[in-house]
Design a protein around this nucleic acid. Sequence first.
DNA 1: GATAGTCATGACACGACGTGTCATTACTTG
DNA 2: CAAGTAATGACACGTCGTGTCATGACTATC
Lengths: 210, 210
Amino acid sequence: MGRWQPGARERLEQAALDLFLEQGFTETTVPQITARAGLTTRTFFRHFADKREVLFAGEESVPDQVARLMAGAPPSLGPMEVIAERLAPATVELFAGRSLDYLLRRRAAIDAEPALHERELRKWALMSEALQRGFRDRGADDLTARLAAELAVTTFRVAVTRWLDQHGDPDLPAVIDQTLTALRRLTAKAPGNGSTPPADAAEVRLPRMA
Amino acid sequence: MGRWQPGARERLEQAALDLFLEQGFTETTVPQITARAGLTTRTFFRHFADKREVLFAGEESVPDQVARLMAGAPPSLGPMEVIAERLAPATVELFAGRSLDYLLRRRAAIDAEPALHERELRKWALMSEALQRGFRDRGADDLTARLAAELAVTTFRVAVTRWLDQHGDPDLPAVIDQTLTALRRLTAKAPGNGSTPPADAAEVRLPRMA
DNA sequence: GATAGTCATGACACGACGTGTCATTACTTG
DNA sequence: CAAGTAATGACACGTCGTGTCATGACTATC
């Protein structure tokens, strides 16, 4: 363990996030981050593979956790049940660790920078791959496994996005539930445009035509 | 228009893809690409914002095309109908321009390099954003618009992947159809594990428990 | 058919990113 | 107190990507 000033990694993460929000990702240089954390440039790259990674540390284990979680679920559960009953609670737990304020600040930084947004997309893609393997190991055919994995990722990503949009007001489990319901309604053959059928939707159907 | 040797851009794209496949993306330096194309380093960055972009040129207009396409569809169509009847043919057309061989080579290069894979994810994300706006403009509420957009992207991305996996054998429209059908079956409440119910699936249900 | 204008390219300098390498410092173990 | 370990510092270096100015080739106009 490091024994100079403890928590070098955490200091770097904090300084980086602060600077990214203050001046932007591109405008922030690694020497600036390390100066604020009281370290040198070389040390930064010993903790993080590149400048973006400072916002994505400690997420490498998630795919493995996902794999174990799925292997531990009763074989009788279908893909959608696995998503709703096993993966959803795990996702909630994943976000329960960090404060809402931190999550919002982190998202603000990521949304402001395409390069960081790409890294965020890769995070979900890695999760999707793990889920896909999990579904295949549970006996699903290749197409179903892929779709189920993508569906799960879509659900959780959309739910978390909306949850943060509303500053965490309806709690995450509720938002996930709402998202799953909307997803089922959407894919059900019933035609319609997706707004709550006749009621309170204030939005207007645009008569546009190209 | 350039009047030195015509097709500088195309020469750069070709040289880059060849070199990426020969020695890998990271190992290929921009001077190497420009040398093979008979140009200078500076010229490369006049045509492409960065090294990755050489594989993603000419795709900036897709989101706009998507927007026009959706605005031109009859307002009576629900989200899933828009996906199946309007967006699917457009997606097919999008891939009809390039030869299967080129698409396979391009994918091989992208799959071998995480940085390129991230760029590919961003491409689909931009398409998803355009779709989301399109669905919202058609009167869908925010949640439905997001989910429909993500569903469309998932469908086409999975379909194209599988289509290329099989070297284009069942044609793309057929694969998209198959994918949409599997997606509807998956989200329908009917429990089950996603393999063709009792028959020919040779895979074994693993008795694993974490 | 000369002249001016336009646009792609060449040439050069430069800052930031990321890595390899070796020395140094602090802590741990015996 | 001595040896070993692990994180850090210091330095050099290659590549990426940009700013800037000069140069070449084509076009339009008179």
